[in-house]
Computed example of a mutant assay.
Amino acid sequence: MQRSRTRQKRKKRKFLSIILLILLVIGAIFAFRLYSSFNNALDNIVNKSALEKSDKRKKEVSLENKEAFTVLLLGVDEREGDKGRSDTMLLMSVNGKENSVEMLSIPRDTRVNIAGKNKKDKINHAYAFGGVDMSAKTVEEFLDIPVDYYVEMNMDGFKDLVDAVGGVTVDNPFAFSYGGQSFKQGTIHLNGEEALQYTRMRKEDPKGDFGRQARQRQVIEGILDKGASMQSLWKYNDILGALKSNMQTNVSVDEMMDIQKHYAGARNNMKQEQIEGTGQKIDGVYYYLVPDEERDRVSSIFKDHLNLQ
């Protein structure tokens, strides 16, 4: 009897060992496929040439040392017959040592000096004049801080990314309808098309463009939360497909890995800043005018966060 039990235990351990080995092999194959797909997708996503190195950086940012860096997110509204405009302009500084993020949505009608053009215009027109680099250089001149990285997203393709992560859940502050979609007040789940319209409405919002910026942040945070979950691993093909078709960035695969390794906790401590100004028409064109002292105030917040003061 004792020998029989011993043999059964050995068979059970052997069986469990075989199951574990099979799981490890499957896991290794899955990890290899994921890494290969990731690298293949990056061939179409990474574009280092679109953004020249900032002259406001004296030395390279060390991601391994968790040094603070900036990212300019451009949501581009591409239009038939022209290059399009940056419908959304979101600046983020990420500090790995403090594990925190500062965010600023720059109103698209903000009147600034367009870098390289020597003219005053709406900040979202910088993209139409000179693409990513002119947008970044205009932001740098406006706030006197470097733009280290960029992420350019086609706003129409934005819905593909939301669908790829299985939709997002947001807390809508008030009921409204826009773009053929109706949004009730309270907690709602959005698919890609709904999320796109949810982030585009601004004229009916009591807070105007600032209310729109808050809704954009909700959706972006929803995508980040879903993308960071284990469940998203099973949707990686859909996610990479959405990114490959609709996104460009100068963040390399190695830099992405470093950011994930050293800055992952920062996404749980995100603070949104707001730049105050007034709306005014100049020569019949509406602009958002930001006083110099307000611009300096916001600039100081980012310089402190980037350890540039």
Rank of each mutant, 00 (worst) to 15 (best):
I282L: 15
K120N: 14
H262L: 04
N47E: 09
F129L: 01
L51I: 04
N44P: 05
D82E: 08
M155N: 02
D225H: 12
D77R: 05
A228R: 13
D304E: 01
V290L: 01
Q231V: 14
N124V: 02
K281V: 11
L24G: 13
N113D: 12
P107G: 04
H125L: 15
L72I: 01
I22D: 06
N47G: 07
K184R: 09
S229H: 10
Q216I: 07
D55R: 10
S86Y: 12
R212S: 02
M201R: 05
D82K: 01
L190M: 12
L306H: 00
K9S: 11
V298T: 00
D254K: 07
D254E: 05
L24W: 05
Q197V: 00
V71Q: 00
A214C: 04
S54M: 05
F174G: 01
G284D: 11
G222N: 08
S37A: 13
T249L: 04
D171A: 09
D171N: 15
F210M: 08
Q309E: 15
R295P: 05
E204C: 10
L308A: 05
R5V: 15
S62D: 06
S62E: 02
G284E: 12
T169S: 11
L42D: 05
R7W: 10
D283C: 06
Q309N: 15
D209P: 02
E64H: 02
Y150I: 03
G279M: 08
Q280A: 13
K58S: 15
F32S: 13
A128I: 10
Y35R: 14
R200K: 11
E78W: 11
S182Y: 10
F32C: 12
M89N: 00
H189K: 14
V147L: 14
M230N: 08
G96V: 00
S177K: 13
G208I: 04
K53Q: 06
V132L: 13
I301N: 05
G186P: 04
T199L: 03
A195Y: 03
R7N: 13
R7G: 06
R295Q: 02
D55T: 10
V76I: 14
R295V: 00
N246K: 03
R85V: 14
A31L: 07
M257R: 15
E98V: 00
N95Y: 04
N250S: 06
R13Q: 06
H262V: 00
L73H: 09
D225L: 09
A136R: 07
N268M: 11
V253L: 13
K53S: 05
N172Q: 09
Y198T: 03
A41L: 13
E67I: 00
V290N: 01
D148S: 03
V132N: 14
Y149T: 08
K9D: 12
S62N: 06
K226N: 06
S252A: 03
L196A: 01
D238E: 12
I239Y: 04
R5Q: 15
D77M: 08
G241I: 00
D133F: 13
R10I: 15
H262F: 12
V139C: 12
G222H: 08
L243I: 13
L308G: 04
K226S: 05
A136D: 06
Q260I: 08
L190V: 09
Y286W: 12
A31H: 02
K120D: 14
Q218G: 06
L224G: 07
S252Q: 06
P291G: 12
V298Y: 00
I26T: 12
N95H: 06
Y236N: 11
I259V: 15
I188P: 08
A115F: 04
P206F: 03
K11I: 11
